[in-house]
Design a protein around this nucleic acid. Structure first.
Lengths: 137, 137
DNA sequence: GTAAACTATAGAGTGAACTCTAAGGCAAGC
DNA sequence: GCTTGCCTTAGAGTTCACTCTATAGTTTAC
């Protein structure tokens, strides 16, 4: 498939896809050239780009991904190093999930405050005051 | 308290704190000027900056935060709009948590693959092949 | 009283990840 | 065969969130 088709399939711009290639995130398994110099993408390219998007979603940089996503036979990283990285990422995500839970609590309080403000501003202020006392503990 | 003390307390640089002020994330409740033009920060500034850090951790931009964190009496946003924003954020976080769970699955698979590769490369390749079949379903 | 350490400002520089532009080559439809 | 649209490249521009520099004024410690 050609670049635009791929772009539409995965929701990236053609610019971004070419940029990722330039940054070394795609290799010959994902993209080849035709006689006219046009890029042709394999189905593996779809999977690869989806994986990149996933990893980006959890806050990985492109450089990090480049290092890690390379096949085991290219030896910029040893298998042990990759295992270390994966374990670390798993840990990071666990911690982020906890952070999200704390954030949900904060947002829920903000919501209660704002909703109360609509109907009973007096009560809202007392909620705020109570929260301040709690935070100061 | 002066800027450096605040910076040390919350783990930001003095540059960043001044930058946040310039971007409208702090107001007179958080920072005032002394006769010598030095900034003095209230305890509320600590809370505010901690909150900003929290929100940043879940991927909010500073512009977004500026809009939302302003007190209800400043009317760039109505209370209803803020409530909408909070509900949307809660939703976003719930979805992100799901994404994290899927990501953990992916990472766990990658880990299994890499660990297997250490001891039994043949088996590792069959894991990969099985995964490809599954992804194509 | 002077040197070191802090404060202020304006504005330049950085790095990541795009995003867009210009200038040209190929391809498909009429 | 020509227009429209997609493809190529190199490289410039953008945005975000800092981060740093230069220059100058103020405060503190000895």
């Amino acid at each position: 498939m050609k670049i635009q088709e791929l772009a539409e399939k995965i929701g990236l711009s053609v610019h971004t896809i070419r940029y990722y290639e330039k940054e070394g995130l795609l290799d010959e398994r994902h993209v080849q050239r035709e006689k006219n110099n046009y890029r042709t993408y394999s189905d593996e390219a779809i999977e690869r780009l989806k994986l990149i998007k996933k990893f980006q979603g959890i806050g990985c940089s492109l450089i990090e991904l480049k290092d890690i996503l390379q096949d085991h036979d290219t030896n910029t990283r040893t298998n042990q190093q990759v295992i270390e990285w994966i374990l670390q990422k798993i840990n990071e995500i666990e911690r982020k999930k906890e952070e999200f839970d704390r954030m949900l609590e904060t947002l829920n309080f903000m919501l209660t405050y704002r909703v109360t403000l609509e109907t009973d501003p007096e009560k809202a202020r007392s909620l705020l005051a109570a929260a301040k006392l709690n935070s100061g503990k």
